[in-house]
């Protein structure tokens, strides 16, 4: 009899659920069929009074009915909740814009400088820097650029007016090499440093010439730092920077502060050395100058002649940026136009 009642309750509950239209009705239904004081609940509570055999049969029957009803309840609840909201009324146009969140941009030069510094720092280099207004000594004399070297021509260097008699002439540094001498004065090899910075050349500006641009200097000095080491560091740097295989090519050159001196090229990163308009079909890109530090530079820094050896090289960050991003006008870098800045 009880068994029949359980079946009836299950069927009744299921049927009653079909007429439930609101959450409130559903809650009433829940109390009636699944609540602690519901008939089914009472049956389950009374199980302890039955013999173990009956307990087994009725218990499983009652629990089964309860589970079926509970599941039906959950389904109905989900359906009713879903129906309780007019979703269309809530619809938004997701393609419409929101409140703009400003996102600024680092200048491309800053981004590249940081990227370059990162690579060198990972190879144990220290980032050094120095002043942009530099004395003639650090910019020229200490680097073995004699007073009559053509690099000192009025055309190339911005000189500062001497307002009162002063011992030294000052200028806007024409290269970051000026920091070499400053660093060496206060440090003893071995060391390896890089010097990023703004430099100045007194020349007329056009799409490919700028009097103000950014350069990198790299200096590594020790007991046995060699040309072969330079090739390794340069190659490791460029492969890391461009994230591809890069070849280094050294050609003879002359700089007063290095001996031997090189021009150095890298295999064109745009065409992988196959020839393209950027490398003028040569497969190589001219990147900068380098060489083994001239002993006279060491002497000027107070190191004994012949005790140390090392390499120095410099390259233009601006040039690298123009190459990497195919920027056609160098003046954009210092031009301050947000339409340029925001592209990177």
């Amino acid at each position: 009899m009880l068994k029949a009642r359980i079946s009836t309750l299950e069927a009744e509950g299921k049927n009653a659920l079909k007429t439930v239209k609101t959450i409130a009705d559903l809650e009433a239904w829940e109390i009636k069929y699944l609540g602690r004081k519901s008939e089914l609940g009472n049956i389950l509570k009374s199980l302890k009074n039955f013999s173990s055999e009956e307990k087994k049969v009725i218990g499983s029957l009652a629990n089964g009915a309860r589970q079926t009803l509970a599941q039906a309840f959950a389904e109905t609840k989900a359906r009713l909740l879903e129906q309780s909201v007019d979703w269309e009324k809530e619809r938004i146009d997701v393609s419409a814009p929101g409140v703009a969140v400003a996102c600024g941009h680092l200048h491309l030069i800053t981004q590249l400088e940081h990227q370059i510094e990162d690579i060198f720092v990972s190879m144990g280099f220290t980032v050094a820097d120095g002043p942009e207004v530099e004395s003639e000594w650090y910019n020229f004399d200490a680097l073995n650029v004699s007073p009559d070297h053509p690099a000192r021509d009025m055309q190339d260097t911005f000189w500062l007016q001497r307002d009162e008699p002063q011992k030294e002439n000052f200028l806007l540094r024409t290269h970051t090499s000026s920091v070499q001498a400053r660093y060496m004065e206060t440090h003893t090899p071995p060391f390896r440093i890089i010097i990023p910075g703004k430099i100045f050349r007194n020349e007329a500006t056009d799409a490919s010439h700028e009097h103000t641009f950014h350069q990198f200097e790299c200096l590594m000095v020790g007991d046995d730092v060699s040309v072969a080491n330079f090739k390794y560091i340069a190659q490791a740097f460029f492969e890391n920077f461009f994230e591809k295989k890069v070849l280094i090519r050294l050609r003879p050159s002359f700089f007063p502060f290095t001996e031997p001196s090189f021009e150095f090229d890298i295999s064109c990163v745009l065409c992988d050395g196959n020839g393209c308009p950027v490398c003028k079909q040569s497969g190589w890109l001219e990147i900068g100058g380098a060489g083994m530090v001239n002993q006279k530079v060491f002497e000027a820094a107070g190191y004994p002649r012949g005790k140390y050896q090392g390499f120095a090289w410099g390259f233009g960050v601006t040039r690298l940026a123009m190459m990497k991003y195919k920027i056609s006008d160098i003046r954009l870098f210092m031009g301050g136009d947000l339409r340029f800045i925001r592209q990177f």
Partner: peptide, 10 residues
């Protein structure tokens, strides 16, 4: 914070 960086002549 939404600022763009410029570089200008010295």
């Amino acid at each position: 914070s939404g600022f763009d960086e410029l570089l200008t002549y010295s």
